[in-house]
Design a protein around this nucleic acid. Structure first.
Lengths: 120, 120
DNA sequence: TTGCATACGGATAAATTTTTCCCCTGTTGT
DNA sequence: ACAACAGGGGAAAAATTTATCCGTATGCAA
């Protein structure tokens, strides 16, 4: 694993939630797992822009942070299922709120994100 | 400015809000500006771990995204004040919710973030 | 026997973000 | 004349995250 050189800040609630939610695909992983897409291959299909590798890595972090649990079925071909823990479920309303704000302001956001600033 | 090589995803609300909120210090900038700390030097004091440079850069992005406005007073020594736009203000409840979730789960989060996984 | 589906993970490269370093503006006070 | 204050920004380095490539394993179907 990567060894941090700049120490973490964990001063306030925002730092703490940031630490578990940062990661390009984590929020989506939580979202889709909550929606019932539990198997790695399903998640990969749902999030085709992410490399399979990063999804594994980020799932492992979510597991470390106790937001999801992983269940491995001893069958062949291998079967794995992720589920949200109660802790993870408590994040769903937060994620909803983020998504809703984005949806409500979709057009405006698209505009400001895509417009080129004076310089670039 | 940096020219992206991997195209943005702007499929859903989560992508969109992510685009304007990602950036190590942006949420805090919005938060402190909302709390009345408007001048660059104040913000730097409030967020001492960020380099002055990044704060400028991220403030400029927030401005581009119409979440803050910048007012330059033609005085000497120079005075600048940032304020939230209405659009920016509409994010405050979202940010509150993030911070609250973090605060409510502070102890647990600290634990899971700092624990070392089996490997590292 | 080759190929496929399912899942895991190491090593390394590439992309992206953040930091560091240094310099610039103009006026006021010493 | 010169340092100090308040704000900006270019260039390059460092830090961090994500992607690419490859190899592991199992049992079943063609």
């Amino acid at each position: 694993m990567y060894e941090r050189k700049i120490p973490l800040n964990l001063n306030c609630g925002l730092d703490l939630i940031g630490e578990v939610l940062y990661g390009k695909w984590k929020i989506r992983l939580l979202w889709f797992i909550n929606a019932g897409h539990k198997r790695p291959s399903e998640l990969q299909r749902k999030i085709p822009d992410a490399s399979r590798r990063v999804l594994n890595i980020q799932l492992k972090e979510l597991e470390k942070h106790e937001l999801v649990t992983k269940k491995i079925y001893p069958v062949v071909p291998p079967k794995v299922e992720y589920s949200l823990t109660d802790f993870g479920k408590s994040l769903i309303p937060v994620i909803s709120m983020l998504g809703n704000w984005g949806d409500e302001n979709e057009e405006r956001l698209r505009n400001v994100i895509l417009k080129r600033s004076e310089s670039n």
